[in-house]
Design a protein around this nucleic acid. Structure first.
Lengths: 243, 243
DNA sequence: CGATTAATTGAAGGAGATCAATCCGGGTGG
DNA sequence: CCACCCGGATTGATCTCCTTCAATTAATCG
């Protein structure tokens, strides 16, 4: 028996507002087939016209852009329960690419189904819209991080964020979680070089804040880590309220 | 006779899709009072619960966040026709502040009116959603810029972007436009220091790409400027298609 | 086990930051 | 009408965080 495809998404939405049974049903019936992709696979290439959007069910995915000199920047790391390209529903073509960072499972949502939701389920649309706004908020915080935080704080911040997001999806233990990324991935997400990420991770480890090794992140001192990052969870919009 | 409040917004939306007469009327009736704010005023402070959203009608506005050491990062610079906090409709509290960079005029949209639109005008909702997705795309490009482009390219890129966005709003001439920002503003938007912005602007000027002086930006060589920035307008999603 | 990919460490270099003046344009009040 | 003021622009000198270059080591996997 496969785990519930929509589980992490519903957990994420219900953390922010109620989702009625009818809405849940509408969401389920909008979901199409499930697909799997191997680690490293580019799933959507920037600029391609899309006819369906994807919900990440299992694994980790990155939205990224490349520059001509081979430099890569990750705009957002997705965890299960995230739509990776819900914005493709209205933008039609993505302005970035999407790649699997691990082996992943995706649930496909044909755009006709989403359009039907916009016509029949006003509150559910607001929740889907909200979900894209939460991505936007995460991206804004990334702008702040990359623009103004020093390297050590950037990395600390990323870890704090992923911890909370994974916890909401029910995928993190007590300050410990699977994070199967390479140091290069972290470098691409923080706008640093892998060499420097390595040094900063060592520093964080030696200071007893955090261990990141073998795809496992362990937060040893949440207080000092979030202080180092100037992390404030407000931007994750975790409160439950009518939307 | 005041200029049409919704003019720049409609121009922006109609550049991407059709907006029917009925939809236009619905939008107009959702608009409430107009407000003005002086240059430098903080209009919305991060975290405050909102009951209406604002459309920028005239002037320039910044979404920004501050860090404890007094460092500021601008996430997005808004031009007329942009909703500055449409996301507040569903997020309810902003994760950033909003400040007037010049004297500005804003049209207020009470959230009840927006909610009514979600219940009666599916296609119009999609357009409003789209508008927030376009902001998101702009913010992603900023992540790329700040994360991976060198200082000179970051500034060049920002100018290219603002030029096209202002042109869509009907506010730019032939490679020349009013941009009443200080070099500090540009520094805060690009994640640089004002001193370095000054040096890079001089370089761009001496190389004959761009002059930015006295609140006027003049692009002398679009080709070389956009090359320097690796600017590709795709992320502005300028194509007209059914959404 | 070789072979490939990721992590680690050292040394040197550079883009951009910081610190500190000076300049400039425009408002303003005497 | 001009001396003064003030925020922004400009320039120089110095510093530093992070990059770059280059090996070496560890881990992973057919």
């Amino acid at each position: 028996m496969a785990a519930d495809l929509l589980g992490p998404l519903l957990a994420k939405l219900r953390r922010r507002d109620d989702v009625g049974a009818e809405e849940e049903a509408a969401l389920r019936s909008a979901a199409g087939e499930t697909r799997e992709f191997g680690a490293g696979r580019t799933i959507v290439r920037s600029g391609i016209v899309l006819s369906q959007s994807m919900l990440l069910v299992d694994g980790f995915i990155a939205r990224y852009k490349d520059l001509s000199e081979g430099q890569r920047q990750i705009m957002e790391i997705h965890v299960p329960g995230d739509f990776t390209d819900l914005h493709g529903f209205l933008l039609k073509r993505l302005d970035h690419s999407i790649a699997a960072m691990t082996r992943v499972r995706m649930a496909m949502f044909p755009h006709e189904g989403l359009e039907r939701i916009t016509e029949r389920h006003p509150h559910l649309v607001r929740l889907l819209w909200l979900s894209s706004l939460m991505d936007s908020a995460i991206q804004r915080e990334r702008i702040l991080s990359i623009g103004r935080r020093p390297a050590r704080a950037r990395i600390a911040h990323l870890i704090c964020e992923l911890y909370l997001r994974l916890e909401v999806a029910g995928l993190a233990g007590e300050h410990r979680f699977e994070l199967p990324l390479t140091q290069l991935d972290i470098a691409d997400a923080t706008g640093l070089t892998p060499v420097h990420v390595n040094r900063m991770l060592r520093e964080l480890r030696e200071q007893g804040l955090l261990t990141f090794r073998g795809g496992i992140a362990e937060i040893h001192d949440w207080q000092r880590l979030s202080d180092a990052a100037e992390f404030d969870a407000d931007y994750l919009h975790l409160e439950h309220r009518p939307r």
